[in-house]
Simulated assay, not measured.
Amino acid sequence: MTKPVPDPLLSSTILLLRDEPGLQVLMVKRHYQIDFAAGALVFPGGKANEEDTSDDWADLTDGDYAGAERVARIAAIREAYEESGIILARGQSGRGEGKPLVGADVAERLSPHRSAVDKREKSFIELVRDNEIVLALDTLVHFGHWITPTMMPKRFDTHFYLAPTPPDQLAEHDGRETTDAIWVEPSRALDMAANGEATVIFPTRMNLGKLAESEACAAAIERFTGEAVVTVLPVVGEDDLGNPCLHIPAEAGYMQTTEPLEAVANVAKR
């Protein structure tokens, strides 16, 4: 009997950028006991939760977004906060698209609550409201959209976003879902994957490759703000030699259009 294909869960991933002096992106190492992509270097991210869908966010966010788009952006900022301690927000008294973001003082004040928010022991909405900030959804640039292949036991409908990191805010891994946090040049991260220094799963590698085409944060933000995002749903097929592989659409603009199926088997089994 054929098993039903699970519906993909709405998820968000955020590529936090800085210049040091060239373009770097924040990556975190997933805990080895996590049941999906354990031990891999990834961008901060995860599934949207019920609170991300609350109508209460209407007064606590900057940016004209609604529905699933608003939910995905809220989830991206929440996940970045939980996994790295970086918060993309503005003070309520200085809110508005394009206005300066809060600095290290606010991030440090919120940091002790990261674990409780992650475990759903504390409301993220209440934390934001009590600290008189609003989430800066407008700072996120939609960069990619990947849906997990249908043969996977766990499936995600994942939106990738770019965002400049607020000045003076420091990244620190959470110690629960992630065991390290590093700033790395996209090309260097690809080299680490190629030579076995790090595990980097297929969607992450493809988005690193696309990001590596920009040399600075401002250049990446400018380019991808105006670039259309093509949804990627990898499908199983064969390459030119008849080997099993995943195919992705060429119009998505990634550095390759096929991936050997054996390369994703370790992720698919988890």
Rank of each mutant, 00 (worst) to 15 (best):
R30I: 02
H31I: 06
Y32K: 04
Q33R: 10
I34K: 05
I34A: 12
I34D: 13
D35K: 04
D35F: 07
A38R: 14
G39V: 03
G39T: 03
A40C: 14
A40N: 15
L41E: 09
L41F: 13
V42R: 15
V42G: 02
P44N: 02
P44A: 00
G46Q: 07
G46R: 08
K47P: 12
K47L: 13
A48L: 03
N49Q: 01
E50P: 00
E51Q: 09
T53D: 02
T53I: 05
S54A: 15
S54M: 09
S54V: 03
D56I: 04
D56W: 06
W57S: 04
A58I: 10
D59S: 08
L60N: 05
D62P: 00
D62M: 07
D62R: 08
D62C: 12
G63E: 04
D64M: 08
Y65S: 10
Y65I: 05
Y65F: 15
A66S: 15
G67F: 11
G67E: 06
A68S: 13
R70D: 00
R70C: 02
R70W: 01
A72F: 01
R73A: 02
R73P: 09
I74M: 09
A76F: 02
A76Q: 06
I77G: 06
I77D: 08
R78D: 06
R78W: 13
E79K: 09
A80H: 02
A80K: 04
Y81T: 03
Y81L: 01
Y81R: 08
E82C: 10
E83L: 13
E83Q: 15
E83T: 06
E83M: 08
S84I: 05
S84P: 03
S84F: 03
S84T: 14
G85V: 00
G85C: 00
L88W: 12
A89W: 10
A89H: 07
R90D: 02
R90Q: 15
R90A: 08
R90C: 08
G91K: 14
G91A: 14
Q92F: 12
Q92W: 10
Q92I: 13
Q92N: 09
Q92T: 14
Q92H: 08
S93W: 13
S93F: 14
G94F: 14
R95V: 09
R95C: 02
R95A: 13
G96D: 02
E97T: 13
E97W: 01
E97C: 10
E97Y: 05
E97Q: 13
G98K: 15
L101T: 14
L101Q: 12
L101V: 11
V102F: 00
G103R: 12
A104K: 15
A104P: 08
A104E: 15
D105P: 00
V106H: 01
A107L: 06
E108N: 07
R109M: 06
R109P: 03
S111V: 03
P112L: 05
